[in-house]
Design a protein around this nucleic acid. Structure first.
Lengths: 256, 256
DNA sequence: CGACAAGTTGACCTTTTTCAAACTTGGTGG
DNA sequence: CCACCAAGTTTGAAAAAGGTCAACTTGTCG
């Protein structure tokens, strides 16, 4: 049972604050009710009162053009960012100047949770296509979580889920890694109500390669082999999975 | 500022519960005041009232002998486990029957945070030497966090820190991975007030190898090379780091 | 002491990287 | 509209890193 009274007070406080700032330019608040990704995002399925309180602390940014870097490594942490639309790449350049690709994120996913511990963002986040981002002040959401236990539980869940990111770092052959990656993406698109067999990978080959810890040349060859064998069909960033069983066989123990 | 009144009520509730169960065998509660690892563990540096409330929900287990598996993959999740003493290995056997080593954990560290999202433990946890473990009921600690904001913040911090576990991905040479691993361990022992130059690695070579995504033969050869070059001295599980600069040079961008 | 597990070493072989070069695209301006 | 450019992608051949297999050494514990 939510404490509706507390939530109401909370929302009112924010309303007041917003009114005080009315003169200054303030980004519009998010509308989680119309957001397709909301169910997979922080709010999950929440009641209207709770949602209103939550929306007060979310700041909607965009639409931003492809290539926009909205988080930069090293910047002080104060918010997590949810993806409303668009695909996002997280990456960092190491001390040798090589770019390391850490993840590919789809709408509804959260970026920046790892930054809390060190108080600074640990990687860059870049939009791969035109998209919208929701900025969620962390101190505020944590504050709200104290009076809205369901939200607290949801945050713990999201942190925990972030720990489960598949590591393609292990010593599995390249075919296994690529097959597992494709199946993983397929599942995530399906979860969002899109086709599990046909989707677009926002990352260029080079970056997929780096994400899967191989070279772009190797990546290209493995894709070619998969296509020869009739497992997939590719046209640039557009991918069609033709034979799930074969892919699962390829992925072996890495299969999601 | 803690809400001492709430904390007090909380502690009293638990006291009552404990008294009711007095007849039945109940594991002794933890004493975080005397625990050397407490500062790095969940409580951090807490005031006495808060600590009492916290201790009520911690169950101290052990001493357990080396080889004890106290978490089994697939078991339903209901608690996280803190290491009071001893080294712990987390691992899982994949669908092909190969063991994958996920981590080596030192006293004060938390195991099981990743299990919350799926409601089941995602790996086994095994003590590598005689040690004591603290079982922390997750529903209860989350409940306490609602009235003790500092604890909530601490939990978020711990989740976030768990996301930063170094990935020993295959696209770095083996020397880099081993050097980085040794430096990482060194730093973690130092943090605990032990020697940064001399420590014991609970894992057998085979398992270090698997953790660093290489074969035991390769591991052995890299250790031999390091010893030849005077970077380290090893005697079985006992390691002495002799040249930090050289190791840092070897570790390159992976250096902690 | 002897058996068994853990660790080491050497020879050989496979996978993946590296380097180099050709080839597609999509966008830009003439 | 088309030529051109740059970014991205593919291909081939050679090389290196690390894996595999098998023998061997060492340490441990009854």
């Amino acid at each position: 049972m939510e404490d509706l009274q507390s939530l109401h007070c909370w929302a009112e406080d924010f309303q007041r604050e917003i009114e005080q700032n009315a003169g200054r330019a303030r980004p519009r608040a998010a509308d989680c009710r119309t957001c397709h990704s909301a169910v997979l995002c922080i709010p999950g399925q929440a009641n209207p009162e709770a949602l209103t309180a939550f929306e007060c602390l979310v700041e909607q940014i965009g639409p931003l053009p492809a290539g926009s870097r909205y988080i930069s490594m090293g910047d002080p942490f104060d918010a997590v960012y949810a993806i409303k639309s668009g695909q996002v790449k997280t990456s960092r350049v190491d001390t040798d100047g090589n770019e390391e690709v850490l993840g590919l994120h789809l709408p509804g996913e959260l970026v920046g949770l790892d930054a809390l511990a060190g108080s600074r963002y640990r990687c860059d986040a870049t939009l791969l296509d035109t998209g919208m981002i929701c900025r969620v002040s962390f101190p505020r959401v944590a504050d709200l979580a104290l009076v809205w236990p369901t939200l607290q539980g949801r945050l713990f869940q999201l942190f925990s889920a972030a720990l489960q990111t598949r590591r393609y770092s292990v010593d599995h052959p390249v075919e296994m890694r690529l097959a597992a990656f494709l199946l993983d993406l397929s599942g995530r698109w399906k979860q969002r109500g899109f086709s599990a067999t046909e989707f677009t990978i926002g990352l260029p080959r080079q970056d997929i390669a780096r994400l899967l810890a191989m070279r772009k040349e190797t990546m290209s060859r493995v894709f070619a082999r998969f296509e020869e064998q009739g497992f997939v069909r590719t046209d640039r960033k557009h991918v069609t999975l033709l034979d799930f069983d074969a892919l699962r066989r390829q992925a072996g123990p890495l299969a999601p």
